[in-house]
Amino acid sequence: MAYLINCPHCGQRTTDEFYIKGDASKQRPGTIGDDTMNQWHDYVHIRDNVRGRTAEHWHHTGGCRQWLVVERDTVSHEVYAVAPASSRTPGKTSATPARKSAARKTPARNTTSRKTARGEKK
């Protein structure tokens, strides 16, 4: 994992504040088309299970309650980037290092967060 996650809203926090959902590499398929059941099976059940750099959905349950995409290494446990899930297209890994991603602004319509002045300043 990582012991510490640099939440874009709250700053560096310990992992026990977070809930981990899992793989964030795939986009939710639609309901129309010939291959939809295959796509859905793939989306819900199949995992790349990468040995190395991976992206996961983490929820900052004990903090800003924002869903984040944490990019990290499954062998070294290094964290490369943390970004709000709402600002990210699934399937693309960002090349932004962790420190910079903290400065990334969340989109205006990401409305549920009680964004504190502290969170904005970060």
Partner: peptide, 12 residues
């Protein structure tokens, strides 16, 4: 948490 996910991760 699921509701937050549905909005923030699926349909922002």
């Amino acid at each position: 948490r699921d509701i937050e996910f549905a909005h923030q991760a699926l349909w922002p």
